[in-house]
């Protein structure tokens, strides 16, 4: 059953390559006969993948919490005035090139994972926020009236009626945000974060196309795997 799902296959392939890249050294030697060191060794691929996943994952988590929270606040009576500015703000955050955000964050935070995390969070906010705003707006007025008329408290209405009904759209936003995050985390290596982008950056600067290939394939597989996982979750959501 589970094995019939592409997510399982892509996941297995990703893990297999992550842990078995060294064994593929003959393949890379054959592909690129001129290279002395055909497989990236500065850090192990499992370490790179874990660090990459943690960075993208925690950024997505934070972006999701902030994004949903901001959208919820902006749709409550007290915060309704902020909704347009929130939309504008998150769109602006999205127009900054991630490299620029990184460059701006480095002087403030130093090299490493932190500037990457900040850039990823800023970057992930927009899809989650706008999806949550759209999801909450998609709840029919009649249902809000029925909920209020039944005597739901505002918090109960949010948890029991609005968020469950907005869930499919919110989840789609989180999916987009997370996938973007996984891709964007790659460039975190330019400011010293340890990610699957490290072999790509080192390969580019050191003219080692094998490193570039290894990093690219793993990042792509990781992104596809997570995307398919989200697909599985969406499939399990009750259809209304």
């Amino acid at each position: 059953m589970l094995l019939a799902r592409p997510a399982a296959w892509v996941g297995a392939l990703f893990l297999g390559l992550t842990f078995g890249m060294d064994r593929l050294a003959p393949l890379f030697s054959w592909l690129y006969p001129d290279l002395d060191r055909p497989v990236y060794t500065r850090a192990g691929f499992p370490e790179l993948a874990l660090s990459h996943a943690l960075l993208a994952g925690s950024a997505s988590l934070v972006a999701t919490l902030i994004g949903i929270g901001a959208a919820v606040l902006a749709t409550r009576r007290a915060g309704r005035a902020f909704a347009p500015s929130l939309q504008a703000l998150t769109s602006i955050a999205q127009t900054f090139p991630p490299v620029a955000v990184l460059a701006l964050a480095v002087p403030a935070t130093g090299y490493g994972a932190l500037p990457t995390l900040i850039a990823l969070i800023l970057y992930g906010l927009m899809p989650v926020t706008s999806a949550t705003l759209a999801g909450l707006a998609s709840v029919p007025a009649a249902l809000r009236e029925a909920a209020d008329g039944s005597g739901f408290s505002p918090v109960a209405r949010l948890w029991q009626v609005e968020l469950p009904l907005a869930a499919p759209l919110i989840l789609a936003g989180v999916r987009t945000s997370t996938i973007i995050g996984i891709g964007t985390a790659t460039i975190g290596s330019t400011v010293g974060a340890l990610t699957l982008g490290s072999p790509i950056i080192d390969g580019l600067s050191g003219s080692n196309p094998a490193y570039v290939l290894q990093g690219t394939v793993l990042v792509a597989l990781f992104a596809i795997f997570v995307d398919l996982l989200f697909g599985e979750i969406e499939r399990r959501l009750p259809r209304l």
């Binding site: 029919p140 009649a142 249902l143 029925a146 008329g149 039944s150 005597g151 009626v161 009904l165």
Partner: peptide
């Protein structure tokens, strides 16, 4: 207001059942 509404049954014009 919340307590008041729980004492008042309300059938809305557009039915408004919770679809989930």
């Amino acid at each position: 207001v919340v307590a008041l509404r729980r004492r008042i049954g309300y059938v809305i014009q557009s039915v408004g059942l919770f679809p989930h």
